[in-house]
Design a protein around this nucleic acid. Sequence first.
DNA 1: CGATCAATAATGTATAGATGAAATGTCGTG
DNA 2: CACGACATTTCATCTATACATTATTGATCG
Lengths: 242, 242
Amino acid sequence: MHDHATDTRPATLHARIRAEVEARILSGEWKPGDRLPTETELMARYGCSRMTVNKAMASLAATGLISRNRRAGTVVARPRMHAGVLTIPDIRADIEARGARYGYRPLLDEMRPPCCVHLGAEGHHLGQSRFIRSVHLADDSPVLIEDRHVFLDAVPTAASADFTSQPPGPWLVAHVPWTEAEHRIAAISAEPVTAKVLEIGPGAPCLLVERRTWRGAETLTIAKQVFRGDAFDLTARFGPTA
Amino acid sequence: MHDHATDTRPATLHARIRAEVEARILSGEWKPGDRLPTETELMARYGCSRMTVNKAMASLAATGLISRNRRAGTVVARPRMHAGVLTIPDIRADIEARGARYGYRPLLDEMRPPCCVHLGAEGHHLGQSRFIRSVHLADDSPVLIEDRHVFLDAVPTAASADFTSQPPGPWLVAHVPWTEAEHRIAAISAEPVTAKVLEIGPGAPCLLVERRTWRGAETLTIAKQVFRGDAFDLTARFGPTA
DNA sequence: CGATCAATAATGTATAGATGAAATGTCGTG
DNA sequence: CACGACATTTCATCTATACATTATTGATCG
């Protein structure tokens, strides 16, 4: 019951320092842009040498969690998702890159009690969520239906966020750092209702993307997106760490 | 002659060491499984302290390019898609995970002159390639058609590889380290010919995956895969570096 | 001949101090 | 008052050294 967060593994000193700093950032105690203690301060706090602190911080900088600058100090990096690893599908950028006008229209926005969310065999309890169903448009024609749950236990600030003009996706990546994400991608036939909303023939091919994002063991959000197959494709790029 | 590989920017000493070792691995000079010099040897070669060498090697180990063991030394890691960052779709594992029997049948295997490959607006010259068209089966029913180019300038050993019983995908990930990959994923309607091979109705939804892989600036391989939409979905998971 | 165990060689971790580079602050001059 | 030169602070890196850890190696012993 004490497994505070998975497990604190103080294997080595610099690993412990790294883990603690990381925990504070992921917990939100140190927010993006915040300056964190100087190496000298941490050195004093942990009673170790600067090299040890340096190793921990260099490691965090390598993964992109923090950003270090000479003299300017070390700050928590804003949660860009890349780390050079992945370009998450940014619908708006994608649409505008094709020269089309992006549009967003929320259809539904309601609170869902915990019981409403049941998926997978996992007994994981997912708390109360805010559920947003929305349509994304390119030049006024709908290209994507999105059903999204944002779990308020993990992201309490989402309760008061305004999703009438801004879709929840960009808001989340801008405000909430995550540690893990899973995408499930499939090709499906459009169901009649879906087809009507997307203005395509029934049975037309659609791209289904189910995305789930975690911070540590907590599920942050689950999204189910249905794209018009003829209007959209995903690209994911994996590159060097640089 | 000076831009040996992109650019050697010896910003710092350990970065330079890291870059040089990395270059030798990616160039194929040091192959997976090879033991590379000990820290003491590198220390002598670069005329620096062991800590500096250690920093470079630790960094490489963190990204998964090399594997380090006490006493046993450091070896070039076999190119798993490392770092737990991405689970590349392994068709065979996926099929067998569902309890089905995996099958592979090559349909075509020929050399293609350089001129045959033309894609994108890029003027990049892609050399001679080996082209393999194949079908992957689950319990003897076809689920995937794959068209693959392997570029022999970048992967000369592929010229003599045996792709009659083993698909080129697994062979490549086992033998060739890559630095960059791009996936383009779309939902399409099956064309009549494709539908016939996949034993589905014409117009049925299919998942199209176009994958392109680089090592540095060189294109290694381009694959176009058409999955039966009802039989398959992709999952990609991005997780912590641990 | 084979199992056991100690020597050894490699990496992993840590400390302390020196040096370098860059942004900030201060002071002096036009 | 404005602007440039210098000093200061602070972080980044490198060196040198020491000890810890661990798997291989090889010698010893049953």
